[in-house]
């Protein structure tokens, strides 16, 4: 555990909590892509199956349970409790275009051809692109609530911090995981455009709106 990994995890946790609270307090999931949230629930489910097979630490286990629990709670709020506020007309990204290729890639490029390892690989690849329905939705509507941009910022910063964590681990532990690193780079790059808008607009007190 190093400072990048810890702050990355906390940033990830903050993102998840911000989104849950935003929906809960406003009693609305307007502007939130339910498809991205289903993909994240799928990501956590397939990655954390090792909760049943191995114990790393109390920190590791509790964070995994919190992430999975919050992911399903978010999906429940969007598709059940506050379904009336869900903006399905703008949430039109075709997720099969992500899930199918990612599934195929997980079968082809993995560390070990075993069920748990393929599912872990699938979750890593899927996570890297799972935000696309949300970004697509924002590009369609041309705007995002400020609280939604805080969520996206924390979520993007988390993987960027993991990149520094992997550099640290490579130098100090000789640890090197090509699959996680490549997927993490892709994931971070997808947020770059958003980071630019967040820094130049939201942090200066303006609402995030895209030119028509």
């Amino acid at each position: 555990m190093n400072v990048f990994r810890l702050t990355g995890d906390l940033s990830h946790l903050a993102a998840i909590i911000i989104l849950l609270l935003k929906i809960w307090k406003s009693r609305s999931c307007a502007g939130i892509s339910g498809k991205s949230q289903i993909l994240f629930a799928l990501v956590f489910t397939t990655r954390y199956l090792d909760l049943l097979t191995s114990f790393i630490s109390l920190y590791n286990t509790s964070m995994k349970i919190i992430y999975v629990g919050c992911a399903y709670a978010t999906v429940y709020l969007i598709y059940a409790k506050f379904r009336a506020t869900y903006d399905g007309n703008h949430d039109t990204f075709r997720v099969e275009f992500l899930v199918v290729p990612v599934g195929g890639l997980a079968f082809l490029v993995n560390h070990d051809f075993s069920p748990l390892e393929i599912l872990w690989t699938f979750s890593i690849y899927l996570e890297s692109v799972a935000i696309l329905p949300q970004l697509f939705m924002i590009s369609k509507t041309g705007e995002a609530e400020t609280i939604t941009t805080h969520y996206l910022f924390c979520l993007g910063v988390y993987r960027a911090l993991y990149l520094f964590n992997w550099i640290w681990r490579f130098y100090f532990e000789g640890f090197f995981d090509m699959i996680a690193i490549v997927a993490g780079v892709v994931q971070t790059i997808l947020y770059c455009d958003f980071f630019y808008l967040y820094i130049t607009k939201v942090l200066k007190g303006k609402k995030l709106s895209l030119p028509a």
């Binding site: 990994r5 995890d9 990830h12 990655r47 090792d50 191995s54 790393i56 590791n60 964070m63 995994k64 992430y67 560390h111 070990d112 390892e117 872990w120 993991y162 964590n165 532990e173 000789g174 640890f175 090197f176 995981d177 090509m178 699959i179 996680a180």
Partner: peptide, 10 residues
């Protein structure tokens, strides 16, 4: 350590 022997990250 090349690759992943166990999943210690989140």
């Amino acid at each position: 350590v090349i690759g992943r022997t166990h999943h210690d990250e989140l």
